[in-house]
């Protein structure tokens, strides 16, 4: 609730400085909150628009409503834990940049893996420490511009060239349907391999470095157990929640594992 009070109490404080009216800078000003909020609402509207259009088209194609509802349920359940992790990212960046900018950057386009280095790099260029809140509006606007302009290429390329990329994939599939499918699967296997490899990055650092590996194994085992329930014991509802159950279970068990080995 403190934050809501913040929004309403911080509105436009003005001070006279060098004969020009300058607004007193505040990292958490109502103005910044409202600007970020408008953009977040825009993105929410885009999600709702695409949800509606694809839902209508799916029905037109005869995909059963039950299947669509299962997709919604599983996507919803799966997204909760990563979203909470994103809030942690907002907290990390908020010490340096206040709430509105990290809230916006992590709701739209970004991920902490990009935004943190971008903010750090901009801060280094300006010679300001990232350990304390920015006090100078010019520093703030520079960092905001660097974070915005620095992380935009993916969106620009998708906007301009996605039609061509998808056209390429479709023509690949037309030439050889089987190879087209294998190609997409291989893309995905490449991605999973990179992330799985990363989990093993610290194993030479001793037992502690094995923690992520054990968590990964537990998550895999939980997934297999879910599979057993779904396929052998015919617990059908569990199929939609197998991924979130395995993920949350492994996250929970990482706590005692870390205590034991850390």
């Amino acid at each position: 609730m403190q934050n809501i009070e913040y929004i309403f109490t911080c509105f436009t404080l003005k001070t006279l400085k060098d004969g020009i009216y300058l607004r007193e800078f505040n990292l958490n000003s109502a103005f910044l909150f409202i600007t970020a909020g408008v953009i977040v609402l825009f993105v929410l509207a885009q999600s709702i628009f695409f949800l509606r259009q694809s839902w209508l088209r799916a029905k037109e194609l005869g995909i059963e409503a039950q299947v669509l509802r299962r997709v919604v349920r599983s996507s919803l359940a799966f997204s909760i834990a990563p979203s909470i992790a994103i809030i942690l990212g907002v907290i990390t960046l908020s010490r340096f940049l206040g709430l509105p900018l990290p809230w916006l950057r992590l709701s739209v386009l970004g991920a902490l893996t990009y935004e943190l280095p971008a903010a750090t790099s901009a801060a280094a260029a300006l010679g300001v420490p990232v350990s304390e809140g920015v006090t100078d509006p010019k520093t703030y606007s520079t960092i905001a511009w660097v974070m915005t302009l620095g992380i935009m290429s993916g969106l620009i390329i998708v906007t301009l060239f996605l039609k061509k990329i998808q056209g390429g994939i479709q023509s690949l599939k037309k030439r050889d349907t089987r190879w087209g499918e294998i190609f997409l699967t291989a893309l995905f296997m490449g991605m999973i391999s990179a992330f799985l490899g990363m989990i093993f990055a610290d194993i030479t650092a001793g037992l502690r470095g094995w923690i992520p590996v054990f968590v990964m194994i537990i998550s895999s085992l939980l997934m297999l157990i879910c599979g057993f329930f779904v396929k052998v014991l015919k617990v059908k509802w569990m199929e939609d929640y197998a991924l979130p159950i395995s993920m949350l279970g492994a996250m929970a068990l990482s706590i005692p594992i870390t205590r034991l080995l850390g």
Partner: peptide
């Protein structure tokens, strides 16, 4: 800290 291993394992 272990969200990615928990996700990618499953």
């Amino acid at each position: 800290a272990n969200i990615l291993p928990a996700l990618f394992g499953a």
